[in-house]
Simulated assay, not measured.
Amino acid sequence: MNEAASIWVVARVHAPDEGGVQTYVSQVARAYARSGRTVTVFAKSSAGPRRLCEDGITLIDVGPAAHLVVYARLAMAMLRAWLGGARPSAIHACTWRAAIPALLFPRSLLVTVHGREVGRPSRGAFRLMNAVLSRTTRILAVSDATRRLLLDRAPDLAGRCVTVWNGVVLPGEERCEPVNALLRVITVCRLVPRKNVPAALRAVAACRGESIALDYAVIGRGPDEEAIRAALEPTAGGLGSTVMTGYVDDAELAERHRTADIFLHPQIALEDGAEMEGFGISVADAMAHGIACIVGQDGGPGELVRDGVTGLVVDGRDPAAIRAALALLARDPAYRRRLAENGRRFARENFCWDRHCRLALEGLVAEVAHVDGHGQEQLAISLN
């Protein structure tokens, strides 16, 4: 096998399970495959254990289990592939925890950090994270906000940590301006407290109180669903309807994007900044679809959107600011369309999975060739 043309992707999660990291794993693997590399993904999901091969990507899914068992299964699956001669040019771990079994193998190791998983660990978990990341070749932060969060805690990692924005899957056709009886506002996210969906519900209700007619859909599911439903009751009524759709498939999500006028995502950081939105793939998707976005200033989304140019950035803890931004876009369709078009153009120029993977591997192949040229093919069996 041509090692320079092969790469391992390692993750603790995978589709059909939902989440931002699952999306990241899938899109990174596809981007590497599009570049002509042979890709093997080692992961776990609720659908495993299984082995699938499609479009230049082999998925080795070790199946659900306790964390330590998953690590052991991933290490054994990788070891079997290694001993069978399938030795990659580099290994890309999609989180720092997924990098633990990858440390056994003498290859350039890339690790992606997304946000909260580097902000929350403390004590022993923090020491383990620092030890793992200190042994990587390159750390890929998905936003400057994520990079700052990591380096505030582990400044010695600055020399190996770079910011590389995530990509988006571009819609297949140009979007036409929707013609709706009422303005349609959507939020697409996993329902967790940092998404601040109750504040979005209150902002929609306040706008209706000012005689602004809005239909609002909250799309997604998650552990905060009960709290959001409780917040929904006092905000019901007025001009327009509010629905919680739960999970929707790709076709319905595409239709929601096609017909939406405003994307509302007033996220906040919690736990003194440790619990934050690292990038905001749903925000980037909405921008790419040409939807005017309102986002919170905390974390990655406040970095992706330039206030007043490609969308609006608000203090997610300020209900009046969220309401005012929503009312402004509702009452000024020309301004809304201008922000939407600027955001669409920015997303298409800057959010690219192929670019993400190209920058991730930049300069690494020569390093591997140097190691191989000196015959260093023995398997490392120690983390020290």
Rank of each mutant, 00 (worst) to 15 (best):
S89M: 15
L149W: 01
A11K: 09
L270E: 11
A90E: 14
I268T: 06
I57M: 09
A288Y: 04
A236G: 09
M287T: 03
A269L: 02
S134D: 02
L83H: 12
S89T: 10
R127V: 02
A347N: 04
V243G: 08
C207R: 12
N342Q: 10
P155Y: 00
L133T: 13
A330Y: 04
I294D: 00
I281V: 10
E117P: 00
R323V: 14
R331I: 02
P266H: 00
A213C: 06
V28D: 02
A131L: 14
P101G: 12
F279C: 00
R348T: 05
N166I: 01
G278K: 03
G237K: 07
E233F: 12
D17P: 02
A5C: 09
A43T: 13
M76H: 15
R80M: 13
G220A: 03
E255N: 15
W82I: 12
N2S: 05
R256P: 01
A199F: 04
F351L: 08
E233C: 04
V309F: 09
G19A: 05
A284I: 01
C53H: 13
V62C: 15
P234Y: 05
R175C: 00
C161N: 00
E210C: 10
S45I: 04
A199C: 06
V365I: 07
V28Q: 08
L328Q: 14
L364D: 10
M1K: 11
W8R: 06
R258T: 10
T112W: 01
S143N: 07
L232C: 04
T235Q: 12
G222P: 01
V197E: 04
V305S: 04
T112H: 06
R344G: 03
G19F: 03
C176T: 11
E341W: 11
R306F: 03
V169R: 08
G311W: 09
H92C: 15
G278I: 03
D272R: 13
L83G: 11
H374W: 11
V169K: 05
D261S: 11
G238F: 02
H257N: 10
T146Q: 02
A231S: 13
R348A: 14
V9Q: 13
H92G: 10
R30Y: 00
F126A: 14
V28E: 04
L253C: 03
I186A: 02
H356P: 07
I212C: 07
D250V: 12
W165L: 06
I60S: 09
V314D: 02
C293Q: 00
A98C: 13
A98R: 12
V179K: 08
L151T: 03
A158Y: 05
G316R: 08
A274N: 01
N384G: 11
R12G: 10
R229L: 10
A66P: 15
G119E: 04
Q297S: 10
S241C: 06
L52M: 07
S122H: 12
I268K: 07
V28Y: 03
M276R: 14
L232S: 06
T38S: 14
V25E: 08
V185H: 03
A93L: 12
E349A: 14
V39W: 05
S6A: 14
L383W: 14
R107Y: 01
W8G: 12
V28F: 02
Y71E: 15
A251S: 04
T38K: 10
D61F: 08
A292T: 10
K44P: 03
L379C: 09
L253M: 05
E18A: 11
I219T: 10
G222M: 00
A369S: 15
G238T: 05
E3Y: 13
W82K: 13
E177T: 13
T259A: 02
M129P: 09
S6V: 08
